[in-house]
Simulated scan of single mutants.
Amino acid sequence: MNRERAMEFLHKAMELPGINRSSIGKVLQIDASQVSRIAAGRFTKLDGHALRVCKYAQSLVEGAHTHADGSFSELERKLARLSSVNPDVARAVSDLIDALAKD
């Protein structure tokens, strides 16, 4: 992913309902001010926090496009809402899914 594409994903992600600099920071455990700097393009290399933020944004955008026809299940909507509000829930659900996938 190049810088231009990464910034495109980040800006598109922040247009999604419930997604903002603060919610991204909470999920990734990065201060919202750093997410703001990244969103403004104030970083030198696409690595570290900048890469994490942009990859997360990419996953949000691609996930939204996958379900652009409105086919989100009730469970998906609930998980998305919980995860955007509480980063601990996002990590716990991720750990649960990883554990279930190993079986």
Results as ranks from 00 to 15, higher is better:
1 M>K: 09
74 E>K: 10
48 G>E: 08
91 R>C: 11
2 N>W: 10
18 G>H: 07
5 R>H: 13
89 V>Y: 14
30 I>L: 10
12 K>V: 02
102 K>A: 14
82 L>W: 09
35 V>A: 08
5 R>K: 10
74 E>N: 11
83 S>W: 01
88 D>P: 00
25 G>V: 00
30 I>T: 06
16 L>P: 04
58 Q>A: 09
17 P>D: 15
88 D>I: 07
51 L>A: 03
84 S>A: 12
102 K>L: 10
98 D>Q: 14
99 A>H: 00
67 H>Q: 08
15 E>W: 02
66 T>Y: 09
36 S>E: 03
71 S>A: 04
70 G>N: 07
2 N>E: 14
86 N>S: 07
60 L>R: 13
38 I>Q: 02
72 F>Y: 15
100 L>C: 11
56 Y>S: 04
66 T>Q: 09
103 D>R: 12
94 S>R: 14
68 A>G: 02
86 N>L: 07
20 N>Q: 05
86 N>A: 04
51 L>W: 00
103 D>K: 14
28 L>A: 01
85 V>G: 11
39 A>H: 01
103 D>W: 06
103 D>H: 08
81 R>S: 12
95 D>G: 11
11 H>W: 15
39 A>G: 05
48 G>K: 10
103 D>L: 13
94 S>H: 15
23 S>M: 09
27 V>D: 05
89 V>Q: 05
100 L>Q: 13
97 I>A: 09
7 M>A: 09
100 L>T: 08
102 K>T: 04
99 A>W: 00
89 V>W: 08
64 A>R: 01
31 D>F: 05
